[in-house]
Design a protein around this nucleic acid. Structure first.
Length: 787
DNA sequence: TGCCACGCCCTTTTT
DNA sequence: GGGCGTGGCA
């Protein structure tokens, strides 16, 4: 499978003399082999983009198992996504056998810690059936705390409050450790305290707790739980180490304290989660805490063409503070990186479609084509365009399936069954479908619960004592109690999928939707069936992995699922944010929205240097995802959130080496207005156009009208090419598509028979073909025959 | 209590 | 552009 995660095998291989014979590890270059063979003590691997990192980690684990005879269940490998974890497990199963793949601990920080907490969490006061609150649940808790404390939600936006709380927790700090500098801080401390109380009462944790509580298990060592956990793993490996936060780092150091067999792999140039608490100093300063660490640098890129690598280097070059690395490649230069000026986001989308069609005509599988953007809001226009011309696509992230109301309701039911103390969930389902339990009743029930110091579910059980609730309402509440009790009795025997099915029936949820008789309700019903199906899939997978399927297991998986985990291996074009693309690779990458303010993105608050550095790294990540073809588009104007933005080309475009790029414009864009990318340093202020000077960037409004014949004025050393492109009717590539596809055989007078590697649509159709004995040759299509 | 309509808000990136 | 909350009405 040409998985996006699978690095292309190195084609120039030094024979690693004296390397232990890890199964299938032949063909590694020297630094790779060194990283694989290293056994005891800390190891830091700087893995440049496309340097075969995944391969190294996998072989290293295989090496530990096969050569060092480490039992697989004593090895922990931490990956960045569940998808990456699954792929690593699959590779190891192939390399070392099924049992090894099964026994290994492979997962994300969050999934791994959740699993550990089910086992060791009791030492820090967590019951085994705890539930994980997602961002939405967390927000509900904050909102309720705000209302309880009679604080203004405008003054203390829940989002802001939550982000403060999370920032503290990522640093392993509690409400008591906060610096209080203002009355706002004071309120936050109180909210924080209340938030923690609520979670504890509900036997729930948030994402930060998953890590933080395991750190507590390790550091507090109550009842020896920390020691027991420490003895569990002999070797720990971590991928994407540049994006770990402080709590995760604490977890790793505490876990490996006794043996220090910690192998971390990452690339500080690809650190893009600072906003989420990631601290690039973890990798840059690793040697401080682990002075004895062996450091290996993987600097050869096997993934991308020479021009793409040099474009990437151009973008990351101006970055400050990076660990010095020399990324290089032995790959052929390949085609130029295309910088395409477009008129607006529709024109941009039209060009995206054109490139997708070209690639498809060249024989590229659609799943090898990706369209990136900086923010989700950019996806809508692209989606509409793709749909209008029937190009199948999948979109990663954005509005998620699991955010739909009916899905959240169904999940809330399951969570209440697993953990009745979860008030957030009980509130959600108590009147869904409508049972005549309104806000008034709910408030009274909540007050009753608070006055007795019990959960709302317990209050439900004792509702007959609640005199403040009217008789009729009490009866309805008792009905819910009976309903839940009945369902819980069944939950012990029914399978998860079966259980959801019963929930939807017994609660009358299906009937209520069916009665609506609307297309919307119809769609909701379908979504619910899909959810039942996904529980079924989970059962199959859990059984295959040797686990017993359970509601807990399913819920945990759902909550900890990343967007990319949903990515299917189908033959579709992929749309995603650049963040989502981390760790993936594609044959063809379209990077859209390369304008100042879009990328680098400027949000509400003006970002500082650190933010700009991160945007730069983000651009670096985006570029290095591409293997063969990279197209970067920018627009003159863009509608965003209802307003029109005037953009000038991103500063990152000016950082690309001239000989690696080719500048193009769509016909719609090229008409009348001209613009050149300024290679002089750009001003950071977006609003002010730079002073006009010959050859420099011209703002669209200030460009003087010019007769078409007068020729285009070129910035020094640049080419400006108009691509003939517009309507669907004219969609070149069709003419050459049939006989000349990638992989088809061709005959040339001088070079003999060869195989087409690539089709190019220049002024005249041409192909790059491989001829045995001659190598790759670019030849005009008219000089070729079919053999 | 439930439904509908209006208006307001915001609008990065995600485990 | 859209999601959410609020407020008014049946």
């Amino acid at each position: 499978m040409a998985s996006p995660l699978a690095p292309t095998p190195p084609h120039e291989v030094g024979s690693p003399g004296g390397t232990p014979q890890t199964p299938g590890a032949q063909g590694l270059n020297d630094p790779q082999a060194e990283a694989v063979a290293h056994v005891g003590g800390p190891l830091l691997v700087f893995a440049g983009a496309g340097s075969g990192k995944t391969r190294v980690i996998t072989y290293r684990v295989a090496n530990l198992v096969a050569c060092a005879r480490v039992p697989p269940y004593r090895i922990l490998a931490v990956t960045f996504t569940n998808k990456a974890a699954g792929e690593m497990r699959a590779r190891l199963s192939r390399l070392c056998g099924e049992e090894v793949g099964k026994d290994l601990w492979v997962g994300t920080f969050h999934a791994t810690c959740a699993k550990l907490l089910r086992r060791f969490g009791e030492s820090v006061g967590l019951e085994r059936n705890f539930v994980i609150y997602d961002t939405d649940d967390q927000k509900q808790v904050v909102v309720r705390a705000l209302r309880e404390m009679d604080l203004d939600e405008k003054r203390y936006p829940p989002r802001m409050v939550l982000s403060r709380i999370h920032r503290e927790k990522q640093e392993c700090r509690g409400a008591g450790d906060m610096n209080v500098d203002s009355y706002v801080d004071e309120a936050i401390v109180k909210l924080f305290t209340r938030y923690e109380e609520q979670l504890k009462a509900a036997n729930a944790v948030d994402f930060e707790d998953l890590i933080g509580k395991v750190v507590r298990v390790l550091e507090e060592n109550a009842g020896g739980a920390g020691d027991a956990l420490r003895r569990k793993f002999e070797y720990v490996l971590v991928d994407e180490f540049q994006d770990t936060n402080h709590a995760q780092y604490r977890f790793l150091t505490a876990l490996t304290r006794d043996h220090r067999n910690l192998c971390v792999v990452g690339d500080d140039d690809q650190s893009i989660y600072r906003w989420r608490g990631a601290d690039v100093r973890n990798i840059r300063g690793f040697k401080k805490d682990f002075p004895e660490a062996t450091v290996v640098k993987l600097e050869q890129n096997y993934r991308s063409s020479g021009r793409i690598v040099s474009a990437a280097l151009g973008v990351i070059g101006p970055s400050k503070e990076r660990v010095p690395k020399d990324l290089w490649t032995a790959n052929a230069p390949g085609r130029k990186v295309e910088i395409v000026a477009t008129k607006d986001e529709r024109d941009e989308a039209a060009h995206v479609i054109r490139v997708i069609r070209e690639a498809r005509d060249e024989g590229v599988d659609p799943k090898e084509i990706a369209v990136f953007y900086r923010i989700h809001a950019q996806s809508r226009v692209l989606e509409e365009a793709l749909r209008s011309v029937n190009i199948p696509y999948q979109i990663i992230g954005g509005t998620k399936f699991y955010e739909r109301a009916e899905i959240k309701d169904a999940i809330a039911y399951l969570r209440v069954l697993v953990n009745p103390r979860s008030d957030v969930d009980l509130r959600r389902i108590i009147n869904s479908p409508a049972r005549g339990i309104g806000d008034t009743t709910l408030d009274r029930l909540a007050a009753f619960a608070t006055s007795r110091g019990i959960s709302m579910h317990e209050a439900l059980g004792r509702v007959d004592e609640a005199e403040e609730i009217a008789g009729a309402a009490r009866k309805r509440l008792a009905g819910v109690r009976e309903l839940l009790a009945g369902l819980r009795a069944e939950a012990s025997t029914a399978s998860p999928a079966d259980m959801l099915d019963r929930v939807l029936d017994r609660t009358g949820y299906r009937t209520a939707l069916g009665a609506e008789n609307s297309p919307e309700a119809e769609a909701r019903l379908e979504n619910l069936e899909e959810l039942v199906g996904s529980l079924g899939d989970y059962e199959v997978e859990a059984n295959a992995a040797g686990d017993t399927p359970s509601l807990e297991g399913y819920l945990e998986r759902v909550t900890l699922q990343a967007d990319v985990d949903q990515m299917k291996d189908a033959s579709r074009v992929t749309l995603m944010t650049v963040h989502g693309a981390k760790g993936l690779e594609f044959e063809v990458v379209l990077l859209t929205g390369m304008e100042e303010e879009m990328f680098p993105y400027r949000g509400m608050e003006p970002g500082g240097d650190q933010e700009m550095e991160e945007e730069r790294r983000l651009a670096y990540v985006a570029i290095t995802r591409a293997r063969n073809r990279l197209v970067m588009t920018h627009t003159d104007t863009r509608q965003l959130f209802g307003n029109t933005r005037w953009g000038r080309p991103s500063r990152f475009l000016s950082d690309l080496p001239e000989d690696a790029v080719e500048q193009l414009a769509t016909r719609a864009r090229g008409n009348g207005v001209e613009r050149y990318i300024d290679r002089a340093p750009l001003r950071s202020e977006f609003e002010a156009p730079p002073p006009r000077s010959p050859g420099a960037f011209r703002h669209p409004q200030s460009a003087p009208p010019r007769a078409p014949e007068s020729g285009r004025q070129h910035a020094p050393g640049e080419r400006f090419v108009d691509t003939e492109f517009f309507s669907d009717a004219h969609h070149d590539g069709d003419e050459v598509a049939a006989p000349l596809r990638r992989g088809s055989r061709v005959l040339h007078e001088r070079f003999g028979e060869g195989e087409v590697r690539r089709v190019e649509n220049a002024a005249e159709p041409a192909v790059v073909a491989f001829f045995p004995g001659w190598g790759e040759k670019k030849i005009l299509a008219r000089f070729l025959k079919t053999p």
